[in-house]
């Protein structure tokens, strides 16, 4: 009996303690994450690998209490100066009720001095969000780039926000090359270009694949990329200029619609690592029946390049295809 009373008392006390602990404080205080006053913040808006020639986009927000002054300038310092086309927006954006970004001019168009891009404010404002577009330069290929976002107020106070480092991919990219049966049909991965038979004859060692379209009864041939020395049955009636001897390995892929190449809604990106781990040692030297939105992994005969050839579109009547390429240099 005595034990039961003891148990009952402990249970009641525990419940009471639980209820007390859960009681909501009547006057909660919010502790700001940062100091009150001049503040800034940055988010990176672009996704996927950072490829030379593409933009890195950031949204750079800054604000201070109006009684503490106004914004005077905003600048971004990149560890490697951006290519031509790098700029800091002189408009501050907000999103309206319809979800559209509306720009309000707050300063003069940006100017760049070496790795520093600056906007001087002309509007009397104490808050702004500017977009920064960093055009990835050739000098940054395979390097790491970091950024310092600096805001200055009318009192001379400067605050800095650092972003990065971001690794810039080693791979190259070439978009929208039209390849045409019997005309510009000779694809060079080394040059990332398509050539005619005459042009191919002048650079035979650089021609990796030949494009053709055939509509042959009883079989499904359609659009094809074959190496110049593929079996004759896979390149029917194709003119191969003398000297074209590359046996390029090629492996068909479906459902790999790289965002950079396809520019469709699929958030899939091919990165340097994909090329590094790719194994085409067993792949054939031809790929037939290629379709729109399909692709093919390619490794050149000299082992110097690996590439992904994406088929953006095909045209059966014109016997053409529009292709885009990502290429990685191995040696």
């Amino acid at each position: 009996m005595q034990r039961s009373i003891s148990y009952f008392s402990t249970l009641c006390l525990s419940l009471l303690l639980g209820l007390t602990a859960c009681q909501i404080e009547e006057n909660p205080t919010v502790t700001p994450l940062k100091k009150v006053g001049f503040q800034n913040d940055v988010i990176k808006r672009t996704l996927g690998p950072n490829v030379v020639g593409l933009d890195l986009e950031f949204a750079f927000a800054m604000a201070l209490p109006s009684e503490e002054g106004k914004l005077v300038s905003a600048e971004v310092e990149a560890s490697i100066g951006g290519a031509s086309g790098t700029y800091l927006e002189h408009r501050s954006y907000y999103t309206n009720g319809s979800g559209d970004d509306i720009g309000v001019v707050v300063g003069q168009p940006s100017s760049s001095e070496g790795p520093i891009t600056r906007v001087n404010f002309t509007a009397d404002t104490s808050a702004a969000t500017l977009r920064y577009y960093y055009k990835i330069p050739e000098a940054a290929r395979g390097q790491q780039v970091s950024f310092k976002f600096i805001s200055t107020s009318s009192t001379g106070e400067k605050i800095t926000y650092e972003m990065g480092p971001y690794t810039i991919a080693k791979m190259d990219m070439k978009l929208d090359m039209t390849i045409s049966d019997s005309k510009a049909a000779y694809l060079s991965i080394a040059d990332m270009a398509v050539y005619t038979a005459e042009e191919a004859a002048q650079r035979p060692d650089k021609i990796d694949l030949v494009y053709l379209y055939r509509s042959i009864p009883n079989i499904t041939f359609n659009h094809a990329l074959v190496s110049p020395v593929a079996e004759a049955q896979y390149r029917p009636d194709v003119l191969i200029p003398s000297g074209l001897t590359n046996s390029t390995r090629i492996s068909k892929v479906w459902n790999l619609r790289d965002f950079h190449l396809a520019r469709l809604q699929f958030g899939i990106y091919i990165d340097d690592l994909d090329f590094e781990v790719l194994n085409l040692s067993e792949a054939p030297n031809y790929a037939i029946n290629l379709r729109s939105e399909a692709g093919a992994w390619v490794e050149t005969a000299d082992g110097k390049y690996r590439a992904y050839v994406y088929i953006n579109a095909v045209n059966n009547s014109a016997k053409t295809a529009r292709i885009s390429i990502k290429r990685y240099t191995l040696q």
Binding site: I216, I219, T220, F221, A224, Y234, S251, E282, A283, P284, Y286, I288, N289
Partner: peptide, 9 residues
Amino acid sequence: VFFGTDLRN
């Protein structure tokens, strides 16, 4: 199978 199928893979 289709003409040109890479039967090794």
